[in-house]
């Protein structure tokens, strides 16, 4: 982890909060996608390359998520920001695995925290049920701003805790090179399995599967040639 100044840490918390808000509440403009969250977090932490590596890794995990209906899913935005903070400033082969552990745990906690906010929203609505039944516009606005605020607090806390843990584990858990590289390889293997799983599940058995296989063939060819 590169030595973050308080100002840099604050910017990362703000960015993590924005990605958390973007996932569901506002504006859902793909800022929460790990490849975006990681690149910007890497830039803020002074290591764009680490951000891109972490972002691409978590994007593979995110490809396994189809946010349809009321499905529960991990929150990869703040997780990617914290994982990037772990990986920044070190060769990516060593930092990626440790960052992935923290990021995956944080993503799962982030998913749970989303359920908490949703239940909190429901309680707030019940609390103002009479005003809603009377058609009070002010009550609708207050509920809406309250919901956004709750989600923003969730994102800020998640990112701040993630950055705190990132700071602690990079100091308290110095890994030897072989273990660090091993963890990175496991993270990459796991991410690839997630991406393949997501792609196969989305493809089903129709024409999309044929296009998936065709794309994989072209990708393999390009990987060999480049």
């Amino acid at each position: 982890m590169s030595d973050l100044q308080p100002y840099g840490a604050l910017l990362l918390v703000l960015w993590g909060t924005l990605t958390a808000l973007d996932l569901v509440s506002v504006p859902q403009g793909l800022l929460c996608r790990p490849v975006v969250a990681g690149a910007v977090a890497g830039w803020l932490a002074g290591d764009v390359q680490a951000g891109l590596r972490v972002g691409v890794l978590f994007e593979c995990f995110a490809l396994d998520v189809l946010p349809i209906g009321a499905v529960r899913y991990p929150d990869y935005g703040p997780a990617t920001v914290a994982a990037t903070a772990v990986a920044a400033g070190a060769p990516w082969e060593f930092g990626l695995g440790l960052g992935a552990i923290l990021g995956l745990v944080l993503a799962a906690i982030g998913g749970r925290s989303l359920q908490f906010v949703r239940r909190w929203n429901a309680r707030a609505i019940q609390h103002r049920a009479a005003a809603l039944a009377a058609g009070e516009s002010g009550a609708i606005r207050r509920l809406q701003y309250g919901g956004l605020l709750r989600d923003a607090v969730r994102g800020a806390v998640l990112t701040a805790v993630g950055l705190g843990v990132a700071w602690a584990i990079t100091r308290a858990l110095p890994l030897d090179r072989r273990t660090a590289v091993g963890l990175s390889l496991v993270a990459i293997g796991g991410a690839l399995s997630a991406a393949v799983n997501g792609a196969i599940r989305s493809a089903g058995r129709g024409p999309r599967l044929r296009w998936l296989i065709g794309g994989a063939g072209v990708g393999l060819l390009l990987a060999v040639l480049t």
């Binding site: 490809l63 599967l209 296009w211």
Partner: peptide, 15 residues
């Protein structure tokens, strides 16, 4: 759908 299938297939080996 087919475009999404193709680009996912393209990206995985490259990544």
């Amino acid at each position: 759908g087919p475009v999404a299938g193709f680009t996912a297939g393209l990206a995985i080996p490259l990544v």
